[in-house]
Simulated assay, not measured.
Amino acid sequence: MKIHYEVISQNDISTIKNLCNELMAYQQSKAHIHPEWFDNMSFETRLAPSVKGAKENFIIIAKDGDVVVGYAYSNITSKYIYSGGFATLDPVDFFDFDSVEGEDVGCLSQFYIKDEYRGAGIGSVLFERSMDWLKSFNSIKDFFIFVSNGNDGALKFYQNKGFSVSHQILDGFITVLKKIK
């Protein structure tokens, strides 16, 4: 296994389409609260619109030779984009807007590594490079990660990296983690 990392442009996001769809299936397999909400989640409904709606994007991939085995997608976006419907018809606010300094937030929005490559340090590299990118924006003070229910491994990983549980939304469907710069 010879892993190398590449930053890709938003024009090349189709490179991670299959991995994004694997992430949605993985999250659904772990979920114990509304797993059916993942039925309509895919690259086309989650990643592509997020990239298009963000002010800034950072996509880093991990490759074993020519095969993409993992990725992390981070963005800078208006905090108000996180108000509205999510897999339901009910509007939901992902956090208390008054608790967020400034207009924009930094989010580690998607993060996935193929099962056979987990535990090899790839996640730590993807995470650190994503956080370095997010921290490079001096105006951004609040960083968020949204973890789907049942994904206890991801929750522990992010907590070990200094993120704290802020709250849950959608009756526990998503746990919101936060770190202040």
Score class of each variant (00 low, 15 high):
125 V>N: 02
20 C>V: 15
176 V>R: 07
118 R>L: 00
172 G>K: 02
36 E>G: 08
11 N>I: 05
160 N>G: 15
163 F>R: 04
143 F>N: 08
4 H>C: 03
46 R>F: 14
19 L>H: 05
19 L>Y: 03
96 D>Y: 11
133 W>I: 02
162 G>P: 01
17 K>W: 08
92 V>Y: 02
94 F>Y: 05
97 F>S: 10
30 K>V: 03
26 Y>Q: 01
12 D>H: 07
98 D>P: 06
94 F>N: 03
13 I>A: 07
147 V>K: 15
31 A>Q: 03
115 D>L: 12
180 I>M: 11
20 C>E: 15
164 S>Q: 12
99 S>G: 03
65 G>K: 10
43 F>T: 11
22 E>F: 03
14 S>E: 14
64 D>V: 15
161 K>D: 11
127 F>S: 00
55 K>V: 09
167 H>E: 06
53 G>P: 03
130 S>K: 04
133 W>P: 04
21 N>P: 00
1 M>Y: 14
39 D>C: 07
57 N>C: 09
18 N>W: 00
75 N>F: 09
21 N>E: 04
154 A>Q: 05
93 D>A: 10
10 Q>V: 13
12 D>R: 08
46 R>P: 03
41 M>K: 10
156 K>G: 03
150 G>C: 01
168 Q>H: 12
31 A>P: 06
79 K>S: 05
108 L>C: 01
14 S>H: 14
138 N>H: 13
30 K>W: 02
178 K>Y: 05
69 V>Y: 13
144 F>A: 00
155 L>K: 12
178 K>R: 13
2 K>T: 09
48 A>P: 01
98 D>K: 15
138 N>Q: 14
101 E>D: 09
154 A>F: 09
106 G>I: 02
3 I>A: 06
66 D>F: 10
20 C>L: 13
148 S>C: 10
180 I>C: 13
